[in-house]
Design a binder for these strands. Sequence first.
DNA 1: CGGTCTCTTGACGGAGTTCAAAGCTAGTGG
DNA 2: CCACTAGCTTTGAACTCCGTCAAGAGACCG
Lengths: 201, 201
Amino acid sequence: MNHQFHEVPFEKRIELIEHLQRFVAVEETEKDQILSSVSFKIVKKKEYLLTEGQLCTCIYFVIRGCLRVYLITESGLEQITQFAIENWWVTDYDSFENQSPSQFFIQATEDSEIIVIDKNSLEELFNLVPKVERYFRIILQKNLIAAQRRLLWINTISSEQRYRNFVESFPAFVQRVPQYMLASYLGITPEFLSKIRAKKQ
Amino acid sequence: MNHQFHEVPFEKRIELIEHLQRFVAVEETEKDQILSSVSFKIVKKKEYLLTEGQLCTCIYFVIRGCLRVYLITESGLEQITQFAIENWWVTDYDSFENQSPSQFFIQATEDSEIIVIDKNSLEELFNLVPKVERYFRIILQKNLIAAQRRLLWINTISSEQRYRNFVESFPAFVQRVPQYMLASYLGITPEFLSKIRAKKQ
DNA sequence: CGGTCTCTTGACGGAGTTCAAAGCTAGTGG
DNA sequence: CCACTAGCTTTGAACTCCGTCAAGAGACCG
């Protein structure tokens, strides 16, 4: 059995609720409503939460571990578009919202613990606890700011500077993924990333 | 008098409410609450809604016309990050949410008619009419999908293809802005865009 | 240990930039 | 309403960053 669905173990509940509390004030009764709408999943390194062609019916919250989102380009290469580590939400919003086949893969790059909400549960939850909808509005806003900042960086600074900025911003994260994945995420070839590193600053 | 604030003229109300109706079902009493929270503004070509260093306290909805969002890079060049035409919302979400000084300019590239909501009014409106918060969650989700798609394009297809895709997707829009702005938005030099065009397909 | 996956290094090529100059176009004032 | 000017677009030559290809060196896992 690769994929395991559970009730959310007690000690894991804290992580999700704590994250919600950072942005909205959640009351006890609401916590129960939230936790009964979500499930818990353990994925081993290299297992998939989503593959190309599937409908993406769920949204994922990383408790422990790391996920990557990527697609296969026309020329057959993996292009990584996102990573998700602890306290990050991730899904293919396009497929999730429009119930259209996804072009992406979502794969664990480490053994990971994930909270899962499916689309229907989430919509019910939005109606039941409007604060959750506010929370997601805020999360989406933050994701949008981050995506726009990445777009800006691509157009204004060199690949070398982008790599160095990234390492400075997320030093711990750089240790956790192989260089060829980092290169793909940064939009450069592994060879060129290697040459940048060889320059030793 | 450059900037004019008004009650929203009756015939303009329709545009905003119609856009809301595409995503959430708004009732008559809610329409009134929404419309009393917003104001209306006319900006002439080249006028600014936001300049670098200001706090971005408002969010803008374009009724007629076109806005561009840009910043000045370290090397002193204008880098355009977004355009907004009819039925698009635009703001600097970073400055708007965190009340930090903006690094962006928001400028009209045509004479434009704009609906304006300031941050406080919007937050009141979210509490008063939760459907509006749902609407903005959906709008943010769409913006995020678009931004992620742009990021993907930059990493997977050539500048020439990106330009041709853009022209095919937004043929009318290409007529409305000068080429050097389009080049900036696409992340290429005006010279290179000119050379692409000279190739005649 | 053996094989596959990952990282490094070098030679070469091409997409896109920079700089400079000339041709156009559109807005402005007289 | 025309002329003038400032701003926009085009063209070309030289250059640069980064990708491609190829081959070898490490590193990790069964």
